[in-house]
């Protein structure tokens, strides 16, 4: 009898704790989502609804045409095109150049290997802001201001990608490599035919981070571009503010479509993304 009572008490305590756990987590998640929710609902409100002094969560009639108005109020088609061209090119070149370098560091023996590797790693300790000014002058001297070249070329190699791929390549057994070389397989063919197919998860992680980093990059694009023709989404968005001023419904519509590609990409590939961060502890 007593045991049964205790059992019930234990079960009650456990259920209660469980309920509390869910309540706290769901409340927390809702708070985290609140700015996104407010962004989307604001984006479909009518002008008089945006200037209400009490909270109105949903508009009386969703104003979907706000998106059309915002899209046409600034050259967002050009901004999007630029963002895609730049992010995809940077991502593609970075993964190729970094894989080549990582392969050399992981599988080849050569003169100055440790020195070069440390030299590469050392740049990860230096904040990019230190390189900003000389790079700006280099771009002026090259005549690359306001061109795709300035927005792409400096970002086509990242030591982080090299490091991540090298670590992954090292985990692929050397016996395989030696056997293949003995059988007359060239080193480059080995990289293409064996290493890269085996390294798909690492390659996806590197490409994902590079794409998102490039898409979201701001300061460099801000100082490199003078005309709307070369601006990317984030920089275009900051200019859009001064164009539309206090029309926050249009501004929120623009913020929504500016974020959309990355949010979709993240939701599709969130496992790789979160695992990648957990493994590397990367800070953007």
């Amino acid at each position: 009898m007593l045991a049964e009572q205790q059992m019930w008490r234990y079960r009650f305590a456990k259920t209660f704790r469980r309920g509390l756990l869910y309540a706290v987590l769901i409340a927390g998640a809702l708070v985290m989502m609140l700015p996104f929710v407010w962004m989307v609902t604001s984006s479909i409100k009518a002008p008089h609804e945006i200037t209400l002094r009490t909270i109105q969560w949903l508009p009386a009639v969703p104003q979907w045409e706000n998106y059309k108005v915002a899209w046409e109020a600034a050259p967002f088609d050009i901004y999007f095109k630029n963002s895609f061209i730049i992010a995809l090119t940077v991502m593609g070149l970075d993964v190729v150049f970094s894989a080549l370098a990582a392969y050399a560091f992981a599988k080849l023996n050569f003169f100055g290997k440790n020195f070069l590797f440390l030299l590469f790693l050392g740049t990860m300790m230096i904040p990019g802001e230190v390189m900003l000014i000389p790079n700006y002058i280099t771009m002026v001297n090259f005549g690359w201001i306001d061109t795709y070249a300035s927005l792409i070329v400096p970002w086509t190699v990242s030591v982080f990608s090299i490091f991540l791929l090298r670590q992954f390549f090292l985990s692929i057994p050397n016996e395989l490599f030696e056997a293949a070389i003995l059988d007359g397989c060239g080193k480059f063919a080995y990289l293409i035919k064996v290493m890269l197919p085996l390294s798909k998860p690492a390659l996806v992680t590197v490409m994902l981070f590079k794409f998102i980093g490039s898409w979201n990059s701001f300061l460099w694009v801000l100082i490199m571009t003078n005309t709307p023709a070369m601006r990317t989404i984030p920089v275009g968005l900051t200019y859009f503010v001064s164009d539309v001023g206090a029309y926050y419904n249009y501004l929120m519509a623009a913020s929504t479509f500016a974020m959309a590609p990355i949010l979709i990409l993240f939701l599709l590939l969130q496992k790789q993304f979160i695992q990648g961060i957990a493994r590397t502890g990367l800070k953007g």
Binding site: G28, A29, M32, M33, P35, F36, W38, M39, I212, W215, N216, F218, I233, P234, V235, L237, T238, V241, L251, M252, A254, S255, A258, M259, I262, L263, F266, L267, Q270, F273, I274
Partner: peptide
């Protein structure tokens, strides 16, 4: 995902919000 989402989004768009 709900807790992580803010980290992925662009600082510019989110600062606007």
């Amino acid at each position: 995902v709900a807790f992580f989402l803010p980290w992925v989004t662009s600082s510019v768009a989110i600062s606007m919000v």
